[in-house]
Write a protein that binds this DNA or RNA. Structure first.
Length: 884
RNA sequence: GGGCUCGUAGCUCAGUUGGUUAGAGCGCCACGUUUACACCGUGGAUGUCGGGGGUUCGAAUCCCUCCGGGCCCA
């Protein structure tokens, strides 16, 4: 039944209209009564709310939504929650400025705290003017601020048309996320998978936090090689070259490559350090690079990661002199005390920044003659925290780790096996996982010295003498999670025992963001909170994400599921590519080449932007192409117009539209439906293989041919030459039925890509939402098509094009009648053209005889109108225009 | 330096296990307002498949090598 077809169609306003309708009707509401087999569950990446959404988000989330809509139409109940990642430094900074507070974890929680500011118009509040608050208060303010960000994000996602159940959202800082992260940590601890260690770790001076391997970034950093003499027992110098002379007080060994001829005689001997006279061994290790500097390096725990490796593998002593503040320790180290450099250290080096200390040491080396030549400028690779701008120092501190196979071959093998079990789309992305897991050389450091994150849920007892006993942490019961050890006392203690002998201290650290994000399947699935739900959605079906976070998010999620649930967290991982700007550079905020997604959606329409996004294959970088969006917009409008047309033949509003395949009797119609059946098969196979681009391509190609050829060919027959509904010819009924069936099918095929335009058309003549309609199957189309050959429609289309070409070349209007013509048709197509000749004549306005002859050998070009050639023609007079 | 990936028409991209004369859309040129559509229609032109070498009856496709872009890891 056709309800209403507008006179003038438009894509404008569809986004708002259907977002409201879908919400009101619960179109995407998740039905949790379904069983695991009926459910398709998606573990969507939670975007960082305090950052801003960019075009890359729109791009990759569209890919996921296409999958979600397809699976839903396939009859799966789609579990597709959206989360917000609020953890982290950017949020902390915004909260400090917005509310004028700073976090001091040593403070107690203040009930009903009201911050001094409510927004400061982007102006920074000086740290001295910020009111210190407890971590719990600080987190409450973070939650308050991120609530605004989340609204903005949701608005964008709704406009883009993500088929998310908005009742299922979560936050990585929310109570249930924190409880989940803490619960998982406590279980790791109980099983021995989490442990603390006093160990060298990378430390960011600026952010005052430890940094994990996954957060590292190696960058070029300017420095100078200083050629410095160590001394053998006989006084002979051994020259090394170092970029960090200030670490000479911390030297523990000189190291050269075992095959290096120059230093063979030194291995096994000792040398003394300049200025300080500390005796250190000369040892061999394959990591020493013979062609770098002098080929012999000083190892000073801990100048860089190679030093750490040497320290560990060669079991060298620990002589750490750099503290968390980035300065040289103020205490005189015992290995220097009493030596020739003790005074130098105490007066010139102790307590200095590395920069000042270096200057002092270099001056002393120059004065003593141990540095005979001037420093030589060089570029070295230094490790940076990805958000920091100062090279990282390596300091020893007490930190928590989770085992990830980096120091355990057995676990590593298990995790590599999980990687093989996971279906990556595209498949080659698997090697990124394998390279990363295979290359790990340490466990996962999860302690972070920040505030807005999930607290490490532990306290430590203080013994009678006031020493903190880190070896016997106090864990909370799972029932009381989440906890904040900095503002809550552990069971059996009271708050006034905090920091007292015989009392306790809370662990002041929070966990790495990924220690929470790695649990998104557990968080959204209700692990240990709603086990009924968990069993229905977990392990999940799909994890979409970017390739850059395979080593972090994807890997850490596999680790947690493997340790906790002994399964892979999902069956499939789809990896979207990057958006490149016209210069083939990755679009990013720092380059200033980003486009605001909301503006883009408003300007082009969401279907148009989705079309652009869906045109890019998974794993492939895509150009930011406004032209492609315009094509998408045209497609959406064409869908509206062609649909309006196809629905108009039956007499408009109130007329019945039959979808009975038995009414399709004309050969051309059956040929079209047979072709459509093939399209359904191809599109379905492509989507099953997570190849949404191919599915779109075959559907779109068919749709345009349908409009250009089929619709034109059957136009007259479908109108029915004055017939009223009482006495339709079977030929007219066949055309109308075929149009309706084709429309019905194509709307479904396009629905995941153009959710708004297809829903609009659906609302004209069908009940419910196209997004809850069944995905089409080829079988009924095959039956209706019978033994018809899809090529027959192409042949008729070619014949029509050949006739049009005559008019085009004569620069005549397409309305010009052809009084008589002869058409040479390749033998293989002749029968098809003869069968459809009445439709061809009507569409080509051939008013007189159309002679069809078999084309001679070599006549015509197969690539042009299928080799069909009009050999003679006579054009009539074009009718006058209908109106001026 | 290592790994992965890409290089096809002016632009953005398809090209399945090697198989006729390499495709699409955009853009371009010409024409046309036809009762779905000017956010349109019709027709047309367009390529050393990054370079070189090899395997083969036959290579955009397989192998080698070089050049250039991108990402990740050292």
């Amino acid at each position: 039944m056709v309800k209403e077809v507008p006179d003038k169609v438009s894509t404008d306003g569809l986004e708002t209209k259907f977002d409201e309708r879908w919400t009101a009707e619960g179109t995407f509401a998740f039905d949790r009564t379904k069983t695991r087999a009926e459910i398709y569950s998606i573990d969507t990446p939670p975007p960082t709310v305090s950052g801003s959404l960019h075009v890359g988000h729109v791009f990759s989330y569209t890919h996921t939504d296409v999958v979600a809509r397809y699976k839903r139409m396939q009859g799966r109940e789609v579990f597709y929650p959206m989360g917000w990642d609020d953890n982290g430094l950017p949020t902390e900074r915004r909260v400090q400025n917005y509310f004028g507070v700073r976090c001091d974890p040593s403070l107690p929680y203040t009930e009903g705290f009201e911050p001094p500011h409510q927004g400061t118009d982007g102006k920074n509040v000086k740290p001295a003017d910020q009111i210190p608050v407890s971590r719990r208060n600080f987190i409450e303010l973070c939650e308050r601020l991120t609530a605004d960000d989340e609204r903005t994000f949701e608005e964008l996602w709704r406009r883009l048309g993500l088929s998310v159940d908005w009742a299922q959202t979560y936050q990585t800082i929310g109570d249930s996320s924190r409880a989940t992260a803490q619960r998982a940590f406590l279980r790791n601890l109980a099983r021995g998978e989490a442990y603390q260690a006093e160990a060298p770790g990378l430390w960011d001076i600026t952010f005052q936090t430890a940094v994990a391997q996954a957060e590292l970034e190696a960058r070029d950093y300017p420095g100078h090689y200083h050629r410095v003499a160590f001394h053998q027992s006989d006084g002979e110098p051994v020259y090394i070259e170092t970029t960090r002379p200030e670490l000479i007080p911390a030297v523990v060994a000189l190291i050269a490559h075992p095959d290096d001829e120059r230093y063979q005689h030194l291995f096994g001997t000792t040398v003394t350090s300049p200025l300080f006279g500390v005796e250190v061994p000369v040892v061999a290790h394959h990591m020493a690079e013979p062609d770098k500097g002098a080929g012999i390096a000083m190892c000073c725990t801990f100048g860089d990661l190679t030093d750490v490796q040497w320290w560990r593998e060669l079991q060298l002593p620990t002589r750490s002199i750099i503290g968390r503040d980035g300065r040289v320790t103020g205490d005189l180290p015992e290995w220097i005390a009493g030596g020739p450099g003790a005074e130098l250290f105490e007066t010139e080096v102790a307590g200095k920044t590395t920069f000042s200390a270096r200057k002092a040491i270099v001056d002393a080396l120059t004065a003593s003659g141990d540095m005979p030549s001037a420093p030589v400028a060089t570029q070295r690779k230094a490790n940076f925290y990805e958000k920091g701008d100062k090279p990282l120092e390596i300091v020893t501190s007490r930190q928590w780790y989770i085992r990830n196979g980096g120091r355990d071959q057995g676990l590593r093998e298990e995790l590599l096996a999980r990687g093989k079990e996971l279906d990556f789309h595209p498949d080659f992305m698997r090697v990124r996982y394998e390279n990363w897991v295979g290359g790990l050389n340490g466990d996962w450091l999860i302690s972070r010295q920040r505030f807005f994150g999930v607290a490490i849920p532990l306290w430590y007892p203080i013994d009678a003498s006031g020493e903190v006993d880190y070896a016997h942490p106090i864990a909370p019961a799972e029932e009381v999670l989440p906890v904040d050890p900095t503002s809550q006392a552990p069971a059996g203690y009271t708050e006034d025992q905090r920091g007292q002998a015989g009392g306790f201290v809370g662990d002041a650290d929070v966990m790495d963001t990924w220690a929470t994000s790695s649990l998104t399947p557990q968080i959204v699935g209700g692990w240990e909170r709603d086990n009924d739900l968990f069993e229905r959605v977990y392990p999940m079906d799909l994890r979409p994400q970017g390739q850059d976070i395979i080593r972090t998010w994807l890997f850490s999620t596999v680790v947690r599921s493997h340790l906790e649930n002994k399964v892979l967290p999902w069956k499939n991982a789809t990896i979207s590519g990057w958006i490149l700007d016209p210069d083939r550079k990755k679009m990013s905020k720092s380059k200033g080449n980003v486009v605001t997604p909301m503006d883009l959606l408003v300007e082009h329409g969401s279907d148009a932007v989705r079309y652009w996004a869906a045109s890019a294959r998974l794993g492939t970088d895509a150009a930011f192409e406004v032209g492609q969006m315009k094509i998408g917009r045209r497609l959406a409008i064409k869908v509206l117009n062609a649909s309006k047309f196809a629905l108009s033949f039956g007499g408009g509003a109130g007329s019945e539209i039959a979808l009975d395949p038995a009414a399709v009797t004309v050969s051309l119609d059956r040929s079209m439906l047979a072709g459509l059946g093939g399209v359904v098969e191809q599109a379905t196979a492509a989507l099953e293989a997570y190849d949404h681009t191919r599915a779109l391509e075959v559907t779109e190609t068919f749709f345009w041919t349908f409009c250009d050829d089929y619709l034109e060919l059957v136009k007259d027959r479908a109108y029915g030459a004055g017939a009223d509904s009482a006495d339709l010819t079977p030929e007219t009924t066949s055309a109308r039925t075929s149009l309706a069936i084709a429309l019905d099918t194509m709307l479904r095929l396009l629905a995941p890509y153009l959710p708004f335009a297809t829903e609009e058309v659906w609302s004209w003549w069908r009940e419910g939402s196209v997004h809850r309609a069944a995905w089409p199957v080829a079988e009924p189309l095959r039956v209706a098509g019978g033994d018809a050959d899809p090529a027959d429609l192409a042949a008729a289309g070619h014949a029509l094009a050949a006739l049009r070409k005559v008019k085009s070349e004569a620069k005549a209007s397409m309305r010009t009648p052809i009084v008589a013509a002869a058409l040479a048709v390749p033998a293989g197509s002749l029968a098809a053209v003869e069968t459809a000749v009445e439709d061809i004549k009507a569409a080509g306005r051939v008013t007189g005889p159309l002679d069809l002859v078999a084309a001679a050998e070599g006549q015509g070009d197969q690539a042009v109108q299928g080799g069909m050639v009009v050999t003679s023609s006579e054009l009539g007079e074009a009718p006058p225009r209908n109106k001026g």
